[in-house]
């Protein structure tokens, strides 16, 4: 894309002679920097600077109080063989399924159903669905801790319908704690996806649906040929946002299981917190933070890249 553009610009310049320093209309101009300057300043000050700082700390062995010693990349090499860290990333992968994949698929299916059979009063649902986005993570965690509690409403309901054998302290269960946390994530991000998709669908011209119907498309082909391509941008945004949410999820884990039981819900950000503030291994925590940041960055880039490719293909 970039190559095509510059080739086109070059052609333009050749066709129409102009003064050397005069930019062609539509060419990027330096004045653009002025517009982004305020945002950029904040970004450098509050995002980039701490990031650089973190990377810098990751090269030291430091307990956070006494003098720090330079250890080079040895924090990274120990991270590489740290099985706790590795399993925390595996837990993250599970959470991505709950935070990103399930909500996006669920959102798409429901949006498709809604476009075929409009529901009255959907505006109310839309607000309701979006609400979890506005509630602080701590509050959500508290609410769900109560729901999942041994004597909470979930177990009560199970016992009421005669499935008492399934009842358990969900967040204290070795194999159920992680899916339980994931379900909280699904509940939170699903509304976001839904709102994104439903507003996206409204931008798809209705004649496209008519054309598909006349062409002979049933519900499935209509979804594949019209709704899904029309929502490409929204799906990408949703995937990136929710994946990042999953990877850096901290508040919900911290306020429900704090990584337990037995580390089965340990996620990288939780592990970083433990190293920095419980084990006094600030340098190592910084290395974990850096690895997490790089992972998020790479994953987001891949998602965007794949989406971009599929559009052009």
């Amino acid at each position: 894309m970039a190559e095509r553009q510059s080739a086109g610009a070059g052609l333009l310049r050749r066709l129409r002679p102009r003064r050397r320093d005069e930019p062609a209309p539509g060419d990027p101009r330096n004045i653009g920097w002025l517009y982004v300057l305020p945002g950029l300043a904040f970004y450098v000050l509050f995002t980039l600077a701490p990031l650089v700082h973190t990377v810098y700390y990751s090269l030291f062995s430091w307990d956070g109080l006494t003098a720090k010693t330079y250890v080079g990349l040895s924090n990274y090499s120990s991270a590489f063989v740290d099985s706790a860290l590795r399993s925390s990333f595996v837990h993250s992968a599970v959470l991505i399924a709950f935070y990103a994949v399930i909500p996006v698929i669920l959102g798409l299916l429901l949006t498709a159903a809604l476009t075929r059979h409009p529901v009255r009063g959907f505006r109310f649902f839309r607000t309701a669905l979006f609400l979890p986005q506005l509630i602080a993570g701590v509050v959500i965690a508290q609410a769900w801790t109560w729901i999942y509690d041994d004597n909470g409403p979930l177990n009560w309901a199970l016992r009421e319908v005669g499935l008492g054998s399934l009842a358990r302290p969900w967040l204290g269960d070795f194999s159920w704690a992680l899916p339980a946390i994931g379900t909280i994530g699904t509940w939170v991000t699903y509304g976001l996806c839904m709102v994104l998709f439903v507003s996206g669908v409204q931008k798809i011209p209705s004649t496209l649906y008519d054309a598909a119907r006349v062409d002979g498309a049933g519900a499935v082909r209509e979804f594949l040929a019209v709704t899904l391509p029309g929502l490409r941008g929204e799906v990408l945004v949703a995937l990136v946002l929710t994946t990042i949410n999953a990877l850096r999820s901290f508040d919900i884990v911290y306020n429900t299981t704090a990584g337990g039981p037995g580390g089965t819900t340990l996620v990288p950000s939780m592990y970083m917190y433990q190293n920095a503030f419980l084990y006094n291994k600030v340098g190592y925590a910084a290395a974990v933070a850096t690895i997490l940041a790089v992972t998020i960055f790479v994953l987001a880039a891949i998602v965007l890249r794949v989406g971009d490719r599929s559009e052009r293909a």
Binding site: P205, T207, L208, D210, A211, R213, V214, D215, G216, A217, G218, A225, V226, P229, G230, R232, E311
Partner: peptide, 17 residues
């Protein structure tokens, strides 16, 4: 789809992808 007619729309309604 079972009527065997084809339609041309004002905004063409071509599948953009």
């Amino acid at each position: 789809r079972a009527r065997d007619i084809a339609m041309v729309f004002q905004n063409y309604a071509l599948y953009p992808q």
